[in-house]
Design a protein around this nucleic acid. Structure first.
Lengths: 220, 220
DNA sequence: TCGATAAATACATACTAGCGGTATGTATGG
DNA sequence: CCATACATACCGCTAGTATGTATTTATCGA
């Protein structure tokens, strides 16, 4: 295959193939050759020309997939005419969560946590980052500042809620539970969050129900 | 090296070396050759004579390390003259948790969640198992039966508390936080658990403080 | 504005060290 | 004597590298 006039198309193809394979087979279960085999005619040389390691491909693939979602979340919080409490509820409302869920539904990571261990580790790490640098903690602190939220331990509450939301309420790396069990989790999480001053709103239940429908429709 | 009269000593040596390396360098970061190199004079043939795969070594190493702790927990709950609520508190009291912590302090898993991703995945999976088949959920249900616990969603509460305790309050795969931050987490977890009917007791704070001391003394 | 040339880029090809795992050989204890 | 506890030698595959080649693009004088 000759040289491409638009190399970013090649990069995109590589990342598309990589994302799919990493989700389906995990990091260790996916070889560079597996990726190359999906890029009809292309060879390993092309891949290693654009990326310097397998790890870099992995990170680039997921960064690219996540970028629009992260931006959407951020933009939602830029507005000034909302209290912190309102923004918090909105973070867990359908409009915020569903796009992310649809991405995962397309990707279908392996339901075995060991197979998906690297993705799991990223989600785990990300839950702490989300609290520190992301949306959740800043919103809570905004709410405390404007008086709409009363929370004694904002950082801890943010971390706990974030972890539970990412790894328990939306358990990407475990088999899908029945709908009522998932709703029970949402209810339980809302109660626990309320106990530390965070009102996630009634919408959490509806959001969870919608997520379940999306996943179920995707044949999860 | 000639044939050993007591092959179980050889097995023990292999598992000791493997446990240490898997903790320090992670699963993927540890090669069979790394393990062999710590068994002075022994070769790969010996290892593959006693174990049929790397994964089997990994599981055997951690099963062996965990066995006494699991048994200790179980035995503690066998007694009949305690209510479910009392047993629950005891699950998170020092006597139950500290032995486990000391094991981890000796092993010192890598603080990078990606490096430790397989261990993280095991802890994650284990949190759900602990709720279903382990100690927590049975104890809660015992408490409900004897009237000492009032919990509307025992399964969900058990899962959430177990996850937070294993992956957040005792974050093996993250850098050690300052003591006050860890105590804040314990306080926060206790509040959240109380909201769904689980009283973890005041001892949780003391237990957490002791754990922090152990880890700190171990130069974590 | 044009074409020639040089340089940078986008790949392909061929290779390496190290990996998990296996097949087989050998010596020792029961 | 034979099952067991190892050692030795090997295999296919992996992530990654070194190098070769063709095509695009920048640079140049005219």
């Amino acid at each position: 295959m000759g040289r491409n006039k638009y190399p970013e198309e090649t990069v995109a193809k590589i990342l598309d193939a990589a994302l799919e394979l990493f989700c389906a087979q995990g990091y260790e279960g996916t070889s560079i050759q597996d990726i190359v085999d999906r890029l009809d005619g292309m060879t390993k040389g092309a891949v290693y020309h654009h990326f310097k390691s397998k790890e870099e491909i992995f990170n680039a693939a997921f960064d690219r997939a996540m970028a629009p979602i992260v931006e959407h979340r951020r933009s939602m919080l830029g507005v000034g005419n909302m209290t912190g409490a309102q923004k918090l509820k909105r973070l867990y409302a359908s409009e915020s969560v569903v796009p992310q869920i649809e991405l995962w539904a397309r990707m279908r990571p392996a339901a075995d946590p060991v197979k998906s261990s690297r993705l799991l580790a990223m989600q785990y790490q990300g839950s702490f980052d989300e609290s520190a640098d992301g949306c959740l903690l800043p919103v809570i602190e905004e709410g405390i500042a404007d008086g709409s939220i009363a929370c004694e331990c904002p950082r801890e509450a943010a971390e706990a809620v974030s972890l539970l939301a990412n790894l328990w309420l939306l358990p990407l790396f475990r088999p899908l539970e029945p709908k009522d069990r998932m709703l029970a989790r949402a209810q339980c999480l809302a109660q626990m969050a309320a106990a530390v001053g965070l009102d996630l709103g009634e919408e959490v239940l509806q959001t969870t129900a919608r997520i379940w429908d999306v996943w179920d429709r995707a044949g999860w």
